[in-house]
Design a protein around this nucleic acid. Structure first.
Lengths: 219, 219
DNA sequence: GCAATTATTTGTATTTAGTCTAATTTAGCG
DNA sequence: CGCTAAATTAGACTAAATACAAATAATTGC
């Protein structure tokens, strides 16, 4: 008798939890060991009992955020993580992939992909849906793809852009990074040139659209 | 023998459709008459057979958008509409409510509310979850509520704020409005003071959150 | 290892943007 | 009519940003 795959479902929306439950149980080897509507509930579950796979949407402010991946790995290092999220911010997706999630699906995926993904993830394999694979390939072979969606910015420039977009002025950024304000000016000028922007405001919009910063709170 | 409530589920995400299916079928009077993953599929369903209630998330670009409400009413005027969406833009929510949806839930709602809502909607009644009711009340009695969500800005200040948030600098705005740049500075300063903001960045965030401007495109 | 390129950093002189203070004009209201 | 809020503006001053020029530091490709 092989032990069933112990799965924890973590999603702030009850509808998605119900949907996941329904879909996952079409695999008779899967045992839904727990459901969580927020990060605290999830961490309690993975600390209390052995979980093979956590299915989680990390992109639900106030309930789950990207740090949940590291938290799970800390609380239960042997647990595999399957993300099912509709995050559309490339940078954040890359970050989460680097943080070590095993598999990544979007919420546009169908039952078949979800069932395949849960099997692969339970085995410790990786599983990515097409949209995510496209992103990974785009990042790995930036020159191959014809579009220029990959930011041509250097790491330092991205760092500066993020801070500028957060509303900090050059002097503050300079103080933060312990460099001269002039350096900030130069970087900012280069960023504007590279991105074909004209005003700092457009930088904010750019940063927002690329997930480099976030709107703080939305009522 | 009373006829069952004929329900069509319209959501681009298969997970949500499955979840809705599961939840709705806990009411034995409900008959899932069809499921649609995009607007065309949905319209085909409501044109082909009599649907009592359409459960739809209008906020899924490329699949469903707010115009779906009017389209449904045109194709099947007697169909009641229950929105389950996680739209967070007040102005759009107000618009959809005006377009004549019967009921409005968010995706944060639980099974109980969904089941109550489907019953009420099938009867032709209205059903709004707390978040939406709060919005309606806030709009109906703007002065009554103690919070200051209603912008204390003068019309001119709103105008300036919009232009600033669009990325125009003071001089451009001044040229547009045929007034002195100093006027813009003064207005901007007053806006920041009234809204308790410190940087132009926060003005953009504020404008975005209040639907005064929109991000152009997101890939 | 060296040349070439790119990334990162800085300074000086100059220009522009923005703040502070204060004041004027306009329009609505009891 | 006097009162108040809104809208407008100027002058003096300060901070921010740019143009320009260039020095290091790190990477890449022979």
């Amino acid at each position: 008798m092989s032990k069933k795959i112990q799965v924890a479902i973590a999603d702030a929306q009850v509808l998605c939890r119900v949907g996941l439950c329904d879909v996952l149980q079409r695999n008779p080897d899967v045992d839904i060991a727990g459901q969580a509507g927020n990060a605290d509930e999830l961490l309690k579950i993975v600390e209390e009992r052995p979980i093979d796979v956590v299915v989680v949407d990390y992109n639900q402010p106030d309930f789950f955020n990207p740090e949940i991946v590291a938290d799970i790995k800390k609380s239960a290092p042997s647990t595999h993580i399957l993300v099912i999220s509709s995050d559309d911010r490339k940078e954040r997706i890359y970050q989460v992939l680097e943080d070590g999630v095993n598999s990544f699906l979007t919420k546009q995926c169908d039952e078949g992909e979800i069932l395949d993904a849960i099997k692969a993830t339970a085995r410790g394999d990786k599983f990515y849906c097409h949209k995510i694979l496209d992103l990974i390939i785009e990042r790995s072979f930036p020159s191959k793809s014809e579009d220029c969606t990959a930011t041509p910015l250097t790491p330092r420039e991205k760092e500066i852009l993020t801070l500028v977009a957060k509303g900090k002025v050059a002097k503050e950024i300079a103080a933060d990074l312990h460099i001269s304000p002039h350096t900030i000016y130069t970087h900012r000028k280069n960023i504007l040139r590279k991105l074909n922007l004209t005003s700092p405001t457009e930088m904010i919009v750019y940063a927002l659209e690329h997930g480099m910063i976030e709107l703080s709170d939305r009522s």
